[in-house]
Amino acid sequence: MDFNEQGFKHLEAGEMELAAKAFTDAIEADPKDPTAYVNMGTLLQSMNDADRALRFYDKALELDPTFASAYYAKGALYYAAGLFVDAEAALRTALLNGLDDADLHFMLGMTYQQLGDPVRGLPRLERATELNAVDVEIAFQYGLALAQNEQIEEAAEVLEQVLLLDEQHTDARYNYAIALAFLGRQDECYAELETVLAYQPEHRLARDAKEKMDHLLGDN
């Protein structure tokens, strides 16, 4: 196990000082390797020290301007800070430099969502689901993006898959119900809203939607 592996083992165990020592040892062993600088930045970011983390990411990019992991790490930092324009630029550069994993596509898709650009966000979220078909949050956000792009039938299919992964995901079930309503499947919509409220009685959106449906049914 090398210093970087030791560092992540300590980081996962919450042993921050030991993780910092391992990443420092990695930098000292090979000061021209950008990997250890990104790892140290990740540690600092997990400790809410964004300024120092950014300096380590920039140092990694000084050593290798094409190091995609450093751009991804910067993008995640900017996203967490609400700097979505900067996040998009960094994450897109990571993509252009060859990084192609679910986390990157998901982060880039969510960044476009935050920028109010669901059209550009949709293919990134779709790619994330292709690379990780069992991640509930990725699938849920992809379903929402499909709905925002008015692809309601496709959204319903994806949200149904989310519920196969997690039947108690009440937000997914609520949005699935709304998609069913748009598709004219009112009885199924009503049943899904009832299920949402069975799992989460305080779900306000589901309660309001069910009350509206009750009112319409009463009028009829």
Rank of each mutant, 00 (worst) to 15 (best):
P65Q: 03
R207L: 12
A50S: 12
F140S: 08
K212I: 14
V85S: 11
M107E: 11
R173T: 04
R173L: 09
Y142D: 02
L54E: 13
A94W: 02
K32L: 11
G14I: 00
H105N: 08
E17N: 12
E28A: 14
L77A: 01
Y37I: 02
Y174L: 06
A68L: 04
L95M: 14
S69C: 01
Q45S: 13
D101I: 07
E15D: 11
A70R: 04
G121K: 04
D101Y: 06
A80Q: 10
D86L: 11
L99K: 11
M107K: 12
L131S: 05
K32N: 11
A102I: 03
G121F: 04
Q200E: 15
R204A: 15
M16S: 15
E167I: 07
P34H: 00
A60L: 05
T42I: 12
F23H: 05
D64E: 10
E5N: 10
G109P: 05
D171F: 09
K74H: 02
Y199C: 08
Q113E: 15
L95F: 11
T195C: 11
C189K: 10
D49S: 09
F8A: 04
L163K: 00
Y199D: 11
F23D: 01
A26W: 02
L115P: 03
L44Q: 01
F106W: 09
H203K: 07
D101R: 00
I152K: 05
E126R: 14
A128C: 03
D2S: 13
Y37C: 04
A90Q: 02
D30N: 14
Q148S: 13
Q45V: 03
L216V: 14
P31A: 09
K32D: 12
L183D: 08
D166I: 02
L163F: 02
E153H: 12
D86S: 12
D171I: 02
K21V: 12
H169E: 03
E194K: 14
Y199A: 14
I138N: 07
D117G: 01
D49V: 03
A76H: 01
I152W: 05
A19P: 06
G75W: 02
L99D: 04
A145E: 10
D25L: 09
D117C: 07
Q6V: 09
L217F: 14
E62L: 09
L61W: 01
G218F: 13
E15L: 10
Q168N: 13
V119M: 09
D25G: 13
Q168Y: 10
L77R: 01
R204Q: 14
D51I: 06
D25W: 01
R207C: 07
L216R: 14
Y142N: 05
T93K: 13
A68N: 07
Y190R: 15
Q114Y: 06
A13I: 08
R52W: 05
C189W: 10
L217E: 15
A22I: 04
Y79R: 11
T24I: 08
L115Y: 00
V85L: 12
A90K: 05
A156M: 07
A68C: 00
C189R: 14
D51H: 06
A102F: 00
A156G: 07
E12P: 07
A29R: 03
E137N: 12
